[in-house]
Each structure stands twice: as structure tokens, then as C-alpha cells.
Amino acid sequence: MSPDPRLSINQATIKRADLATALRVSAQAGIQAIGLWREPVQEVGLAAAARMVADSGLRVTTHCRAGFFTMPEGAARRAALDDNRRAIDETAALAAAGAPGSTAVLVLVAGGLPEGSRDLAGARERVRDAIGELVPDAGAAGVTLAIEPLHPMYATDRCVVSTLGQALDIAADFDSAAVGVALDAFHVFWDPDVIAQIARAGRAGRIATYQVCDWKTPLPADVLLSRHYPGDGVIDVAALTRAVIQTGYDRDIEVEIFNEDVWATDPLEAVLRTARGFGAAVSPYLSP
């Protein structure tokens, strides 16, 4: 059975594969789209990466990741913003190299609390300010900045934006073509308000990308590596997917998995296993 044509393999799912391998095994498995990460792209250089993407015939769905700009004003914040501008340029170039239907979406992970701080609200305001500085660059490049809320267990060290509602509150200050949200089932499934917030995101035209994987306990010691294949855990992927599709979302859907066992699997087998899980847990719910 062929993989669902809307399935995109986020490169994190096969993290140990270099860019050439990731592109090759995705195409070999019949996948039509891929979400890229900055580190493998930078290993080969942007120009070479763009050529490789073009040769692969795959659509590009996202570029991961930028952000990490919660620190107070100073040299470190200026450096972070400059790095985000480079990421915007990368995103535009890679999307342009991808097959028709590629989307220029740069995923933003806000960053955690600065050292010694307990001020989550203040850190979120600095996220809003940073995005405001980047919007002109994103607009000029035709790139959408996608704010990704992360599960609250990451609030202090990785992302002070914890709910879809918080992400939408920040995005609301900016044009929807420039700023949207990255809606990741792993991070938002627990939120009792998530279905209403998905509808809100849809009304505002803010869903830049939809990502799925699964959650099950016990969590590993490193909770960053606690994602599983769709259908292998407790997330109601069906309900979330129905809600997203009901907004009119018609783009590709990424599977993004951080899991040592998945990373240790042969990349082609991991992609094929991902496609099977997607076909069972997501595909049945893609019709409005």
C-alpha cells in the first residue's frame, strides 16, 4: 500500500541520517514531502542542500528550527535574532527548491527562562518583541514564522510558550501570512481547550503546519525523547486531526519523532513504519 500522499517525514524522525540519506529513503519509501532541520542542511551548505532537495522531487513542508530569543536585550539576543534571519533565508531557499506544493514555514521554538529568572510572562513578551523584529524579514522572503507551543514540562528550559492559545495571542499581533502556529499533537493534546483553540487558529488562518506523533508513559529520563509512532500511545489523534481538517487545513502533515529506539532503526524501516502508523492513525480522518 502506498503511503498517504499528505504524509511528510520530519527529518528529526530519522535524526541519525544525513540529508542525502533522509531524502533518498523518503523518496524510496514513496513519501512525497519532508520537513528539514537546519543542522543537516548546514553540514552540506545551503546551496548544495537546495540542489539535493530539487533533485529529490520532494516537497518541503517546514524548516526546523529557529527562535530561542527569550534573553534580555544585549549581545546574545542580537546574535539570536541574526541567526533567525539566516534561518529565514534558508527556509525561503529550500522551499523554492522543493517540488510544487512546498511551503516556506520556519518553525520557532521560543526558548526557556533566562538564567536566574522566574518571569515566564516577561519572557513571553520578549518572544513577541523578537517576532516583531523578524516579521519584516520574513515578509520580504515570503516565509511564515510558525510559533510552536511546547508541552509545559519544557516551559522553563526550552519554550515559555506552552499552549496553543498563548501562541495565537502572540501571533494575533501580526499578519497571518507572516506569523502562524506549528500545531504539534504531542505538545497540545493534554490541553482541555485545544479543540476550541484549533478552531480559533483556523478562523484566523494561522495553522502553518500540523505535526503528529504519540505519547505514552512511563516517560524516559530525558523527556525530550518521549515521542512514539502515531497510534502507539494515548493521544486522541483522530479528534485532533478531525478538528484541524475541519478548519480547512489542506497542507501536508508531518510526523516528528524524538526517540532513541526509532533513531537506532534503519532509516528506511523507520520511514516505512511511520507511514504505516500514519495510515492507520491519521489517514482515516483526513476527509472533511
Rank of each mutant, 00 (worst) to 15 (best):
T209M: 13
E90D: 14
L46N: 05
A22Y: 04
L19G: 02
Y285G: 01
V41A: 00
A80P: 08
A171W: 05
T21N: 11
A221D: 10
R86V: 05
W37H: 13
A208H: 00
L224C: 12
I245Y: 08
P284M: 01
S8Q: 03
A182G: 05
L94F: 01
V107I: 03
L225G: 05
L81W: 13
Y249E: 00
W37T: 11
L145M: 12
P284N: 06
V44N: 08
A33S: 07
G45I: 01
R124C: 02
R273L: 10
S8E: 01
L240D: 03
G101P: 01
Q211L: 09
D232L: 06
T91L: 06
D119K: 11
L164N: 10
G35S: 03
A172E: 12
A264Y: 08
T274G: 01
I170R: 12
V255R: 12
H187L: 07
T61F: 00
R206D: 04
A196H: 11
N84Q: 11
Q11G: 05
R77G: 01
Y154R: 15
F278A: 05
A20F: 08
D191Q: 13
A204D: 11
S8M: 02
D129N: 15
D222L: 02
D175Q: 13
T163P: 08
G142K: 11
Y210P: 07
A275H: 05
I198A: 04
G277P: 00
A201Q: 08
A208G: 04
G57E: 07
C64S: 13
A33Y: 02
H63E: 13
D137P: 04
V44K: 11
A185K: 12
I170N: 06
G205R: 10
V109P: 04
V135W: 11
L94P: 04
W190I: 03
V212R: 13
L120P: 08
E256L: 01
L23A: 03
M71K: 13
A54V: 04
T91E: 07
T13D: 00
R16S: 06
R128L: 07
D222V: 04
D157F: 15
V127N: 09
P288R: 15
V179G: 03
A146D: 07
L268T: 06
R203M: 10
I198H: 11
V53K: 09
H63W: 13
V282E: 07
I31M: 10
Y210R: 12
Q211E: 14
A130S: 14
A167F: 02
G231D: 01
F278C: 02
Y229W: 11
R118K: 15
T21G: 06
A22F: 05
T13N: 05
R118L: 12
E269D: 14
G57Y: 08
P100V: 00
M71V: 10
R6Q: 05
S117H: 06
T13W: 00
T62W: 01
A199D: 13
A171K: 09
P218W: 11
L106R: 10
G279S: 10
C159T: 00
A138S: 09
A182K: 09
Y249Q: 05
V255N: 06
D236E: 03
A270K: 13
S2K: 14
I207Y: 10
R77N: 06
L286I: 05
E39H: 14
S26M: 06
G30Y: 08
